[in-house]
Amino acid sequence: MTIHDDRIHACLDGQLPREALREEELRQLQALEAALADTKSALDTVPVPDLTSRVMEALPAPDGTPATRTESRLGRIARVLISPVTIAVRPAYLLAGVAIAVTGLMLLRPSEPIPTLPPVAAVSPAGSRMYVQFRVEVPGATRVALAGSFTSWQPEYELTEVSPGVWSAMISLEPGVYDYAFVIDGTRMMTDPHAPQIADSFGGSNSRLFLPAPNESA
């Protein structure tokens, strides 16, 4: 007889009465039950904290303004554990891309609507941080905020409506790879239609921003 017979597990699952087990099976059943009781008992020794206040204080405000940001221990661990993945690219390509985007914007006639674009990056003279412009078209929105892996998914950055329905914000970021989404009117998330889409863990998707270090070569 095997030590862990399927009949014993069927008994533990309530599909076989204890009386149906042989003596040796019953002994094995009791050993398994002891291990299960130990496990449950050990977990029960850890008190369940009341997280209600913590959660409610950290919720985004109804008007879309960011809640007071309290970095959790998980956030601290995640910040340490998750190193940004940098994509090597020749600096000239990055600068050329920025130049093309800026030139394209300058060539537009003022009467034309301002188009939305993928995030545009420019190197900060101060060092490795880069200024990234996010722009999105959301007709009818009263408030648009930006949340992402760089804000622990808190909608920290408010976008400004630069023309009817077109919202924009410029923020500085370190080189790396970031996931982000726009928070519309403080109630719903929206991906950036001009950026690559990445599936998240909840059946939805986020937008992804690749921000190569300016001093990296391909």
Binding site: V55, A58, R73, L74
Partner: peptide
């Protein structure tokens, strides 16, 4: 880890709020 479990639970409940419409 009790601390990590509390953080994960808190984060889950905040994410659930922000995605409640889904």
């Amino acid at each position: 880890s009790p601390d990590a479990a509390a953080d994960l639970t808190q984060e889950c409940l905040i994410r659930a709020f922000t995605r409640l419409q889904s």
